[in-house]
């Protein structure tokens, strides 16, 4: 019986201090990342929760946002965010899906090689640049073509947001299409289906959970966006009413926090309400992420079955 195990154990601790140090460093860094997230969440809670105590629910969930008169109705902000985000997804999701189908299924190889990096560049454009573009180029078009009194509308914001979430939607949807086994395509083609029928009836349905995930991630990207939205939506905290609301200014939750946080007195009710809005936003994005995670989990367990 040899005794290598005791020897190595004796030799290991003193002779590898560097190993030990690196391991500890990584552990500390890893845990501190989790720690910071927890601290931010606690901070958000302690600053945001008082809002729900100091402001009566009837006031908080009303439709009038006039902080100077102690009217803290957040509904216009939530519905502003919802209107802009949903409109953005109505534009971006079909575009993104079709682009992904084109890039993955239809485009010849050379076009795919050109398109994929281009789409990634699109993701790297700073949001303030897009906001700038929206203000100077898109807003006049919206004003003149659609006859809106101002070009800074929910629609303008939605178009810019759609543009911003496109790269996410395209690349996630493309990965999902790529993961569809070749055997499904073969089966469909061998049944006498055309290429289009194969894509539409077999490949896309088989990738639907990944495509839904692309939608959710794009939505998460859109709802949290601040700068571009603040620059192009006009920032009027009014309840969107009817279909024309899309051609009127709105104000989103993110824009409200960004615009007002700098001017508010520390510890005031207004201050706490802004954090409360942050909490609501956090809850919404958390739910979206949760939906994505559960979808991924389902996908993985289904993949394990086969």
């Amino acid at each position: 019986m040899k005794k290598p195990s005791s020897q190595t154990r004796v030799a290991r601790l003193p002779s590898r201090p560097l190993e030990f140090a690196i391991e500890s460093l990584i552990r500390v860094l890893g845990f501190s990342a989790i720690g910071f997230v927890t601290l931010i969440f606690i901070f958000l809670l302690t600053e945001g929760l008082p809002a729900f105590l100091q402001v009566r629910p009837g006031n908080l969930f009303s439709t009038r946002w006039y902080p100077t008169f102690d009217l803290y109705g957040v509904l216009p902000l939530i519905s502003g965010s919802a209107l802009v985000t949903i409109t953005a997804m109505l534009i971006a999701f079909p575009m993104g899906l079709f682009t992904a189908v084109f890039v993955r299924e239809v485009a010849p190889n050379w076009a795919r090689e050109v398109l994929k990096p281009l789409i990634e560049v699109l993701a790297g454009i700073p949001s303030v640049v897009l906001g700038f573009f929206g203000m100077t180029m898109l807003a006049p078009i919206v004003r003149e073509v659609l006859g809106a009194p101002t070009g800074l509308t929910a629609l303008t914001g939605a178009i810019i947001l759609a543009y911003m979430s496109l790269p996410t939607i395209i690349s996630v949807a493309e990965d999902a299409l790529d993961a569809v086994p070749k055997s499904y395509r073969d089966a469909s083609l061998a049944m006498g289906a055309t290429r289009w029928q194969t894509i539409w009836r077999v490949v896309v349905p088989s990738a639907r959970s990944g495509i839904l995930m692309a939608l959710m991630l794009g939505m998460g990207r859109a709802i949290g966006e601040t700068m571009a939205v603040m620059m192009v939506t006009g920032n009027a905290a009014r309840m969107p009413e009817g279909l024309q609301a899309i051609l009127k200014p709105v104000r989103t939750m993110t824009a409200t926090i960004a615009a007002e946080m700098g001017e508010v007195a520390h510890g005031s009710t207004h201050y706490h309400v802004l954090f409360g809005i942050g909490l609501i936003l956090f809850a919404i994005t958390f739910l979206i992420n949760l939906a994505v995670a559960s979808m991924m989990f389902q996908k993985r367990s289904r993949g394990g079955l086969r």
Partner: peptide, 20 residues
């Protein structure tokens, strides 16, 4: 070719039903 494959069907080595 589409008509051809409707007249000449094919069954593959590994069962490949659609996930439907």
């Amino acid at each position: 070719v589409v008509q051809l494959r409707q007249r000449v069907g094919m069954v593959f080595q590994r069962p490949n039903p659609f996930p439907q």
